[in-house]
Design a protein around this nucleic acid. Structure first.
Length: 541
DNA sequence: GCGGATCAC
DNA sequence: TATGGTGATCCGC
């Protein structure tokens, strides 16, 4: 039997075993949802097998590399890198990560106190319901669960109230989403001669008093640690990690690698695979430093060192809208096979995307079509164009062409994403501005902030069809949400508006929490060439 | 620039 | 646990 045949048979057997009693005499599966479940499961299994294969490859690679290397030398080299990373440690800043407790649920309870104590929010968690879980699954786990429709406007308002309090502690407050944020309270502590724990207790009390929402907080010298810590005494609690190198490394040593932001399921399994048998905590990173260093190319040893040492970015700055990298729309549906139907769906999605691009005020140069086969395999096809585009009329033909090449298809998801963006609300650079000033001065008021006519062409060939962005201006009522049409009031900041728009766009989405505040904590690139002489700390291991 | 994979929320 | 949608990043070409 060939490899392929064997694989096929395994799959058939597997599907059969899953189908169980619903397989009729003829071996036919009863209904479509059943089939779907089987395919989904099979796809999971396939992915799992692929991962296992990858891990096996890593193991073999590790073994062959280790054969040609000296473990002693590797460990010495690893220690040197660890020392270098260690010398970048900065304990001077006090960083806080705040996380609102069961945010949506709490806001809903606030609006409708009769929900209190009902199978809802934390109550439903006892039954295994988790946030982000599909409603029908939650129902199965806990049939009495109360599912409340999402009211994003409420969450935005609540988030804003909390933010106002937080801003008193750090004007550079960095919101990572509606219910999460980072602060640097170093300045506040000095100004008020207060200890960190007292500042945070006070902050939390103040938030609760003002909004009746409770938050949890982590106090640590950098964002990564603060985030991990905010989870420690949740809900309605706080956790301080001593600003002491030894305390921090001990803390990390026993921490499951999965807890580190950015270390997901796959990374965890890969590390496990390399750690001889078990690689579960960050402490194992040190234990297996020779293997990990020899696999540096695939595992980025410096990065692992930072995780092990608890060293990370401690900069806190508000996210900037210009940092957005892409805007996209995608839809899942029942299998589609009909070419016309698929192209019609594509057109719908292009329309949606145009709306988003317009309200968010972006144009882009790269069109990416994404689709998911009925087997749950994802594919993307991209095409870049010379000039910035944003309307369906411009995007759709490109997307259509990309997709047509792939037909015929049996798919369950279709999407379009625009990237290589230009932020249309940003005033142009000098040169371009001058260029436009000549041609458009007469049509324009001498407004203080010019936000129109911002289309520039990198290949400086302005063509007749060039897109001129619609201009939306704040007026006396304050900015108006282009989606729900609501005036948000004169005091509304740009961030408020953008957040509102983002959430408004999402209002009818299925499922739960999704946010799109641009900017999220990321692994910072390695810093270079520090030096330190603290061998003692390493010796202790 | 393109395509796949992974991750967060 | 049988789910989706949006966006970012990283890697290998």
């Amino acid at each position: 039997m060939s490899e392929v045949d064997a694989k096929e048979k395994r799959k058939r057997d597997f599907e059969r075993s899953l189908a169980g009693p619903s397989v009729g005499k003829a071996g036919l599966v009863r209904d479509q949802t059943e089939i779907n479940r089987i395919i989904a499961e099979a796809s999971k299994v396939r992915k799992d097998e692929e991962l296992t294969e990858k891990i096996t490859w890593f193991r073999n690679k590790r073994d062959s590399l280790m054969q040609d290397a000296s473990r002693e030398k590797l460990e010495t080299d690893a220690d040197r890198i660890l020392l270098e990373v260690e010398s970048t440690r900065d304990l001077t800043q006090t960083i806080i990560h705040v996380d609102m407790d069961a945010f949506y649920a709490s806001v809903e309870v606030l609006m409708d106190p009769s929900l209190k104590g009902k199978p809802f929010g934390y109550e439903a968690r006892k039954f295994g319901c988790r946030s982000g879980m599909a409603g029908f699954i939650a129902k199965k786990l806990c049939p009495h669960i109360i599912l409340v429709p999402l009211n994003f406007d409420r969450y935005i308002a609540a988030s804003k109230s909390v933010r106002e309090v937080l801003l008193q502690y750090d004007e550079n407050l960095m919101m990572a989403s509606l219910d999460e944020g980072y602060l640097n309270i170093t300045g506040y502590m000095a100004a008020h001669d207060m200890a960190a724990v007292d500042v945070v207790s006070q902050l939390r009390a103040q938030v609760e008093e003002k909004t009746q929402l409770t938050i949890s907080a982590g106090i640590a010298p950098n964002r990564m640690l603060a985030k991990i810590c905010s989870d420690k005494n949740k809900p309605n609690g706080q956790f301080l990690l001593d600003f002491d190198r030894n305390v921090i490394t001990r803390f990390m040593r026993d921490l499951p690698v999965r807890k580190i932001p950015g270390f997901g399921r796959v990374t965890e399994r890969c590390l496990e695979g390399l750690g001889v048998e078990l690689m579960q905590t960050c402490g194992d990173i040190y234990t297996h430093r020779a293997e990990l260093l020899v696999m540096d190319h695939w595992f980025n040893f410096r990065n692992l060192s930072k995780a092990y040492l608890g060293i990370a970015d401690n900069k806190v700055a508000p996210g900037k809208r210009e940092e957005r990298k892409s805007v996209g729309v995608e839809r899942t549906f029942r299998d589609k096979t009909d070419n016309e139907e698929i192209l019609a769906e594509l057109a719908n999605i292009a329309e949606e995307l145009e709306k988003d691009m317009t309200t968010l005020q972006y144009a882009g140069k790269t069109v990416t079509v994404k689709y998911k086969l009925h087997t749950y395999v994802n594919k993307t096809r991209a095409q870049s164009v010379k000039r910035y585009i944003s309307t369906s009329a411009e995007i759709l033909p490109i997307a259509q062409e990309l997709l047509r090449r792939e037909l015929p298809l049996r798919i369950r998801l279709l999407g379009i994403r625009m990237s290589t963006l230009k932020d249309l609300t940003v005033p142009e650079s000098d040169g371009i501005q001058k260029f436009f000033a000549k041609t458009s001065a007469k049509t324009r008021e001498p407004t203080p902030e010019p936000i129109d006519l911002s289309l520039e062409d990198d290949d400086d060939e302005l063509e007749e069809g060039d897109f001129v962005p619609p201009v939306t201006k704040d007026h006396l009522l304050g900015p108006v949400c282009p989606i729900c049409g609501k005036a948000l009031g004169p005091g509304t900041s740009n961030q408020d508006l953008n957040e509102h728009i983002d959430w408004c766009l999402n209002k009818d989405a299925i499922g739960e929490a999704k946010k799109r505040t641009p900017k999220k904590p990321k692994k910072d690139p390695d810093k270079k060439e520090p030096k330190g002489s603290m061998m003692a700390w390493l010796k202790g291991k």
